[in-house]
Amino acid sequence: MKYIKIAVLFGLYFNLFGCINKSDSTKKEVVTIDFDKETDQEKTVKKIFFNLPSPIEITQTILATKSPFNNELPNSATNVTNYSSSSDLALNFGVYGADLCYCRVYDQLQSSISYLAAIRKITVLLQIPEEEGSETINRIEENIENRDSIFQIIAETYAGADGYLKENDRDLTAALIIVGGWIEGMYIAVNLLNTQTNQSLLNNIAEQKYSYENLMSVIAEYRDNPAIAELTPYFESLQKVYAQITITHDKSVVVTDQETKVTTIENESQISITPQQLKEITNLIVEIRSKIVS
């Protein structure tokens, strides 16, 4: 029995592509080795990584709320010409990734194509290898009519880029893309809620408390980066609001429907979020998003 406890925190595996940036070669894994003796029940533990929902999942949950499509919410694809620094490009790559998913789940084909073009431009600017970038975008264009194919291709692209970034010590880029994608998903959600009363959407925003905790770990890891440093005070304010939101669950019961063979984890949750908390979250998300896209 080894008496080694390894906690490998991190692996940024979510969104698309990256950029050439010296500061990308920051340490990608935090490894702590504790030689203290463990009890027999304890085992070598490797936390493979933290996880955040991809834009695909976020926009899927928005779609499930039956909110109508709002074409004023996504960042305009024409803004792509405004971004030049590697940090801005990476952040807005995440933003456009979320916007693409948002448009695609609502079958907004023309908008989807515009976002593809924006992503293609950023891909070129970031010098993404052909097999990780443009090739995939070509496949998306060829399959634009097929929703499932699009999701599959986007997902493959994420995974391919994750691997690429990790192999090339560019985790900071991945972190920036994660931040951009998450913020854009939240921006769409809080704005949709501004125009309607939708408990499901409200719950969805509150439930991002889970993702947020992981996101803050990403922020903390890269706080020395100027782009992250500029956003950090806003994220810390957001953290304080989310800390006040409570989500509790009843005991889990796993039930399998004998007819449909669908297995469900049956448990209710109780979510507590006040109008003031929602307002604070909305304001902070709008501020952060404005800094990213402007």
Binding site: V45, K47, F49, S54, D162
Partner: peptide, 25 residues
């Protein structure tokens, strides 16, 4: 549909790994 999150690692015999994920209703 694959969610695009690449969760992979090289593990050794006897290793124990864990990953926390969020699942939506």
């Amino acid at each position: 549909i694959y969610n695009g999150q690449l969760n992979s690692a090289v593990l050794n015999e006897g290793d124990f790994a864990e990953l926390m994920l969020t699942f939506y209703s």
